[in-house]
Every structure is written in C-alpha cells, then in structure tokens.
Write a protein that binds this DNA or RNA. Structure first.
Length: 555
RNA sequence: GCGCCUGUAGCUCAGUAGGAUAGAGCAACGGACUUCUAAUCCGUAGGUCGGGGGUUCAAAUCCUCCCAGGCGCGCCA
C-alpha cells in the first residue's frame, strides 16, 4: 500500500535526522500522514514538523527544512515535496506508484480490502437478540443490518468472528406470552375471560392460540396454570422464534449460534457465576437479597442479582452469559443493544470486570431508534397495542437491499428516519441504487466489450500511461483508500463509513462515465480505461458484499 | 434531580486519530439523452458547526458551563 510505503520512508528519514542530531524526537513519536482536503496540498501531507516544533523549541518550518533535506527518494516515489503553510510537508506521488494500485486490485480481486488488522483476534458480535414474544420490527432490522455488516467488516480485517443471537427464553415475559396465548385459546373456545393489558395484544397471539386449538382441541380448557403454562409458553416462544429466524434469513442475516438463556439456568451457569462472585467478594447480602457491588467498578448503584424471594434478576443470567462468552475464548465481545438499554451499560461493564476481564474486552454499541415515516409523515407504532410495522413488512415493501443500505447509512448511535416512500424510489434520492447502478453500468461495459470481441484484457499491451486525466488519477486515489476505509470501520466499529465511501466512489465513476468513453477506437486507451473501470467494479462489489447488499450486473 | 446519546445548509446526514479555504444527497433554480444503461451528468444558490468560556501554532473535533431534543434511572425484562 502506498500509505505504508510513504510512512516507512518518513520514519526512516526521521531516524536519520535523530542520528545526525538535527533535532530531537521524543520517544513514542508517531508520524501522522493524511490526505489533504485541498488538492493543491499534494497527495499526502504530514504535520510532523508542527508536532516536533515544541519539544525542540524551534520553528516548524526549520524542522521541515532539515527533514526534507534528509528525505532521499531513490525509487522515485515522490514527484514533489514541498513545505507549506505553518510547516506542513506536502508530498506528491508519482503516477507510476498510483498505477500500481490498479495492479494490486486486479491481483487481489475479491481480497482487495481484506487485511490482517485483526490478527486473528476472536470476536463475537451479538445482535438483535429480540425477545421471542413477538415478530421483529423495523428497529430490530437496523440492529440486524448493522450487526451483520460489522461482523463482515471484522472478518474482512482478519478477525475470527462469530455472530450470535441471545434468546431470552426464560423469565416472566415468556410466561406472559404463554398466558396471553392461553387466554386467547380460552376465548376461542367460547369462554368469557378478561384479556389484561399487560398481556401481548398482537394478532399473532390469536394465530398461535388457534394453532394450539387445532392441535389440542379443548383438552386444556380447564388446565391449571402449572399444566398449561409450560406447554403454551414453550410452543409460542418456539414458534415465534422460528418466525424471527426466518425473517432474519430473508434479510440475509445468518447466525453461527442461537444461545438460549434458559440453558444457563438448566446447566447451573447462573448459580455458578453467583457463587464465583460471592467468593470474590463482588456479591454481598442485604435485606434478604444478594447484590452485585457494581459501584466498586464504576456503576452508580449496586444491583440486585437474587431477589429476596429467591428469584434471580436479568442481570444474573447476563453475568452468566458473559462469563460463558469469555470461557468460549473470545478476546472481544461486542453487543448491539437497543438505545433503551443504555441505562444498563455500566453494570454490564462492571460485571465483565468483576469476572476478571478488562473493560475493553466488552464493547456495547447502542443502536438508536428508527422513526418510520411515509411521505414525511410519522407512522405510529405501539408495541403494547400490537400495532407495529414488522421487519418483514418493510422488506416486502422496499426490498432487502434498500432497507439494509438505509440502515447502514447512518451512524448507529443517532436516531434514523426511515421513509418508506423514499426507500422505494429509484432515484439518486436513494443511494443504494446509485451505488448499485455504478456496478451495473460497468458490468454492461464488460458485456459490450465481450459482444464486440474486443481484446481488452490482454496484459501484454496494457499501458496505463493513457490514464492521465485528473479525474482518472482521482479515481485511482479513491480506490487506494478502500482498504483504509474498511480498516477504520473495523477499528471504530462504525460500518456507516463504508456506504459513504461507496457513494462517493460511485459518484466519481458516474461523472467519469458521462464524460469519457471507455470502449473506443483507440484500443490502447480503451484497454487502460477498461482496466480502471473493472477495478472500480471490484471495489464497489467488495464493499457492497460487506454490507450484505447485492451488486447487480443489470438494472 | 442524576446519567447517557444527539445538536453541522430549508430537510436527511458525513466530516478520516486536533490540521490548511466545513462537505454530500435531497428539496429550489437553470441546463445536458442520434453515443458503453438518464436509476446518470453539469451549473447556481444555500453555514455564527446549538451558545459562552478554556486548552493549542491549529478546535466541528479535546475540557468546562449553559440551552434544546431523545432515552434511561425497579428486589422489571
């Protein structure tokens, strides 16, 4: 990579400067290299002289001058080195070095953009994890898109990744679910019973009740709670979970593991983690309950893990769950949570630390709410009343690619406005088509070249010197940034960087396409441009793949 | 009251690890299809980066106070 080459050169020069006592270099000093916003400032710029000025108590420009004098350029990487402004060193890279980017892309193909950044670190991404008490809604879709893309990006950067869904199949909400279905079941059989507001109101409950009636007839009409509850709860949760699983599959999200909360109770993991934390002094008894002393680890108050009535809280199973994660060997555990859980974050970090891990071994990412709109007007949703737009509805209406792209084109911690009408529009209003269209257009060029039986793929007579337009150089530079974009998305756990990059790349391509012909009589020129556009297609395709969005050859 | 998130163009959002003159899309206005896909392109206009202070050679970015919006503060999940 060009960036690495430059950095290496700069660091070597810096070392020389130190050896010759031209100026002092503080220990741990790192050279910063950036792509300047303004073209006139070169292809790359470094502020090293500015940063070294203070420790050396002399002017940045003097440092820059002695540095540049030492900067040997044997291999002709730079065609310009300039000191500018307060002391920036601006570097212009030779076209030959830029052309190598295209060779690299063609050589690596689908591996272009992959890196060893993660060094085999074993990472778990747990996302969606919606309670199996109702179908997935749009908000879950956002979590699904973000979690899945993030996992893919981490994979691409050398991490070993597992995608996991945590099933909250224990606890009161599952009992409520079973009770809800049972009450509807009774109603179906003609019994007048009251259906409390605390029960799940959605139509899907009726459907489940009907299924129970079909299988069991009226044999449970008079069952006691002890009898009906496990049966109805189990059936409903399993059935809803199947629906969730299918919705996610249809959305293109595949999990490596579905982890049952109930299993943590059944195999004693919850009891074990409580005992462990008691032994380590992190859990104490007060008022008949057991408390996790999370304040010692940064939380604002201590939290109950075992209630006075002997029941464990949600935190207890979550502690067991996270202990299990680390026992499975994950170096890093990432959880995507709905924004309404943010009050829960500190105790979870505290929990992880109590379990002997570092705070950084857990990363909790909040996915903010989705505001569903139709033609700019808010679509009202109320889970309690059972009125919500399900993920399935949205996918059916706007399509999987558009939905995923829109979910990913916002930072996940800021609320998202999702306009159903806009998402369906096939225009530049809708960036997903804009990016896909670039891919389709290039595919079309390739088809055309094949139809005309043009020999554009022959490496023998490929001469990249034909690519000398400013917009061609700009495109190559943009392509060279792709690996960094992927790496930074992984580093900061911010998948949204990728769709932005792809939109910009597509924009540069569309403009280029409009103004210059690829296929043309000048075969040398045609061949060079063909090489360039095919590289663009590869990068667009690679990027879309990471986002879980298809890259169509025709639109 | 306390905590977290957010505040950038009319709207939706970017802003790369503190860098040089703050960006894109949409909407508005004006243009471009006998050509490899017009789901496209070109141009114009639009800003006190919520506000005040501070740190720095340099702040949308870091610190602090204030304002506004969202969410959360249970022996609930």
């Amino acid at each position: 990579m060009i960036r690495d080459k430059i950095l290496e050169k700069l660091n070597r020069t810096l070392e020389q400067c130190g050896e010759r006592n031209l100026f002092q270099i503080p220990p741990g000093f790192e050279v910063q290299l950036e792509v300047p916003r303004v073209e006139a400032h070169g292809d790359f710029a470094t502020n090293l002289a500015l940063n070294l000025a203070k420790p050396n108590r002399c002017s940045p420009r003097d440092i820059a001058t002695s540095f540049v004098e030492q900067l040997a350029d044997g291999d002709g990487l730079f065609t310009g080195v300039e000191i500018a402004g307060p002391g920036f060193i601006n570097l212009v890279i030779s076209p030959a070095a830029w052309y190598e980017v295209l060779d690299e892309i063609h050589r690596l193909e689908h591996n272009y953009g992959r890196s060893e950044f993660g060094l085999g670190r074993y990472v778990q991404v747990e996302f969606v994890s919606a309670n199996p008490t109702g179908p997935l809604h749009v908000g879950h879709g956002r979590g699904a898109a973000v979690g899945d893309a993030l996992a893919s990006i981490l994979e691409a950067t050398g991490h070993r990744v597992e995608r996991e869904y945590y099933i909250n199949d224990a606890g009161t909400q599952i009992e409520t679910l079973g009770r809800s279905v049972f009450l509807r079941y009774q109603q179906l059989l003609g019994r007048q019973v009251e259906f409390p507001e605390t029960c799940y109101q959605g139509d899907y409950i009726q459907a489940l009740a009907k299924e129970m009636q079909e299988v069991h007839g009226d044999s449970h009409l008079n069952s006691s709670e002890e009898e009906f509850l496990p049966l109805f709860s189990d059936y409903a949760a399993k059935s809803i979970l199947e629906g969730i699983r299918k919705d996610l599959e249809d959305f293109g999200v595949h999990y490596d593991r579905w982890f049952s909360e109930k299993s943590l109770y059944e195999n004693g993991a919850v009891d074990r983690v409580i005992e462990t934390l008691k032994a380590s002094g992190n859990i104490y008894e007060k008022d008949g309950a057991f408390w996790f002393q999370s304040t010692a680890l940064g939380d604002e108050k201590d939290r109950v893990v075992v209630r006075a009535n002997g029941m464990t809280t949600y935190l207890a199973s979550d502690l067991a769950y996270h202990q299990d994660k680390y026992l499975r060997g994950f170096d890093l555990v990432i959880n995507l949570w709905g924004a309404d859980h943010h009050g829960y974050m500190e105790r979870m970090y505290a929990g992880v630390m109590a379990l002997g891990r570092k705070r950084e071994d857990l990363r909790l990412l909040l996915v903010q709410l989705v505001n569903l709109l139709r033609k700019g007007k808010q679509v009202t949703m109320s889970t309690r009343a059972g009125e919500f737009v399900t993920l399935k509805d949205v996918i059916d209406e706007v399509g999987r690619d558009a939905a995923r792209f829109i979910f990913l084109t916002r930072r996940s911690d800021s609320p998202l406005e999702f306009d159903l009408e806009l998402a369906k529009e096939k225009s530049a209003d809708n960036p997903v088509y804009y990016v896909q269209y670039a891919h389709a257009r290039i595919s079309s060029i390739i088809r055309m070249a094949k139809e005309q039986q043009l020999d554009l793929d022959n490496p023998e007579n490929l001469d990249l010197e034909h690519l000398n337009l400013p917009e061609e150089m700009a495109l190559i530079k943009q392509l060279s940034l792709y690996p960094e974009v992927v790496e930074n998305s992984a580093r900061f756990l911010e998948p949204h960087r990728l769709p932005y990059y792809l939109t910009e790349l597509a924009s540069a391509f569309h403009s280029y396409y409009k103004h210059h012909r690829i296929i043309q009589d000048d075969l040398g020129m045609a061949q060079a441009r063909y090489y360039l556009v095919k590289a663009i297609r590869l990068v667009v395709g690679n990027g879309l793949a990471l986002l879980g969005v298809s890259a169509p050859e025709q639109m």
